[in-house]
Design a protein around this nucleic acid. Sequence first.
DNA 1: AATGAATGAGATTTCATTCAT
DNA 2: TATGAATGAAATCTCATTCAT
Lengths: 175, 175, 175, 175
Amino acid sequence: MLASQGLGEVNTNTIARAAGVGVGTFYAHFDDKFALQRELTTRGLALLQDALSLASRETQDQSIEQQVRASVAGFVEFAHAHPALYRVVFSGGESLPRGGRPGVGFSARALENRLAELQRGGHLEASVDTRLAARIFNAGQSQIVLWWLEAPDPPAAAQLIETLVQLHPAVACRR
Amino acid sequence: MLASQGLGEVNTNTIARAAGVGVGTFYAHFDDKFALQRELTTRGLALLQDALSLASRETQDQSIEQQVRASVAGFVEFAHAHPALYRVVFSGGESLPRGGRPGVGFSARALENRLAELQRGGHLEASVDTRLAARIFNAGQSQIVLWWLEAPDPPAAAQLIETLVQLHPAVACRR
Amino acid sequence: MLASQGLGEVNTNTIARAAGVGVGTFYAHFDDKFALQRELTTRGLALLQDALSLASRETQDQSIEQQVRASVAGFVEFAHAHPALYRVVFSGGESLPRGGRPGVGFSARALENRLAELQRGGHLEASVDTRLAARIFNAGQSQIVLWWLEAPDPPAAAQLIETLVQLHPAVACRR
Amino acid sequence: MLASQGLGEVNTNTIARAAGVGVGTFYAHFDDKFALQRELTTRGLALLQDALSLASRETQDQSIEQQVRASVAGFVEFAHAHPALYRVVFSGGESLPRGGRPGVGFSARALENRLAELQRGGHLEASVDTRLAARIFNAGQSQIVLWWLEAPDPPAAAQLIETLVQLHPAVACRR
DNA sequence: AATGAATGAGATTTCATTCAT
DNA sequence: TATGAATGAAATCTCATTCAT
């Protein structure tokens, strides 16, 4: 119903007004100020997961680099398609009360597992700490996209994607 | 005198109390709530720059990887030495009133220049977008250290440093 | 149809929901929040008056104490039969908009007249202030019954009735 | 500092304004809206207890009726001296959140014990249920005084006291 | 007639900032 | 200079009431 605001430092009145509803209506839909954020984060993350899963499925027979590229492209395209939602999910600008914020940790586990798998298969440097590498890459990716969405002269999406691919652990530390 | 708070969502009274001074005293030293943050950020950044400059100077005759390692180690050591200050400077948890926050952009220019230099010297893949690569790495580095400072079972600093070195553009995309 | 709530601090939505009707329906039947209370109070009081009148009529040839006992028993039985309604009528927990609440004053006039009659007949201490005595007894009676309805280990009704009889002005101050 | 308001249905703004302070000041002194009520109730009850204890001590060698009269007089005088405080403590017009409200139960235990003592000493009808009698009298007393404070043509305090004495269990059911 | 989503005035509460001491 | 009680604008949230269906 009401969906994508910047939601950084806004107050409930503004949120409601911006959504074209009364203050009371807001509270009819959400328990409190943070419930909206939780809701949007949950939805956004689910949407993103879907896109990434699809990308993964579609490239499962291709090269590792192609798989990485598809994943990164899916991520960037999601942000491009839903910039406001992306900001709500990944912007550190506000306060998810207790344990909500994904940030560094978002899907780090999934990437970590994938890297470990590649490592076992001999496709990734044995010396790479998969837990750290996964988190570092994810943090870099989510932050750069945040920047990209707001940059005055943003580079082309393709350029962004290509650079992320180059720095992805599975590519940068491949063997 | 008053220095290291988390300073994410705290109010002035709490800040002052925690610093052991009266609320009024706080306003005798700082114009407003954000002046403290600006002040700490400025000082913290200066301190960090000093450490990084020193590391750079000390390794200017060594290999690129050694230079990178020294830079990363300097960054991690700074965070370890001044965790609260680090959080104030790099945590996205609060609101510098417009344009203050370093985040992705911090010293990206410096790294960007260094990468461009390497590229010109033929030490870095020509296809790397130095502006993006610098920002991605910096974002990943600052965020992972934030996580590292608060992780329940943080990896050893050496491990963290090594992984960051592996993912550093100058190392990952060297030629 | 909708009848027995605690109605102390509840809001209209809850009242309507509990009554099994929509909020809108509530306002189709009552002008505002207090109209229900007024309505219930009026009905409750009428019901109670009927019971007391009946008790009075049935014992008009018996002893004063028997009359008092019948009246008190009628009161207690009414509360027992319609606890929610009783609470609405006698609970001080909410706000009848000006002048509605019976409380101390409920039927004090009737009892006052009865006491004055007894006094004229020489059956009651001449020194008793009938206006005050009537109000004190009524207040005590209505409040104790409120307590009785909610007490964790309430005494038997008979015990309650007997004690009220003992403390009734017409019994306690008889001559 | 701020002391006696009517405090029936008032809002925090009004309370603060009436006390001659800003809204914020109110919250500097009390945790929330109800804390004031709790505070006043506690103080009022303590004050009342003191008065009653004094009355009890001063009449311990006199007749039971004198003791009762002193107690009742102390109660009435307290209400007369601190009408607003009395209303806050005994008015049922608002909501002490959980377990605060004295009402029927106020000092019922003390009176109950006193009555039981008299009963053991053979000064009170054996058939009287002391628990009920104590609560009935207390309820009647507190409610009638509430009425008395607001009655358009209130009877003299002496008259009120005398009537309460006449209806007090220890007097009405003495033996 | 019945409904309940929507409303917004108003109540509660917070907090950056001031100022008398 | 240091203090913290006092302030009130602004934020969060509630709830009696309306109205389109």
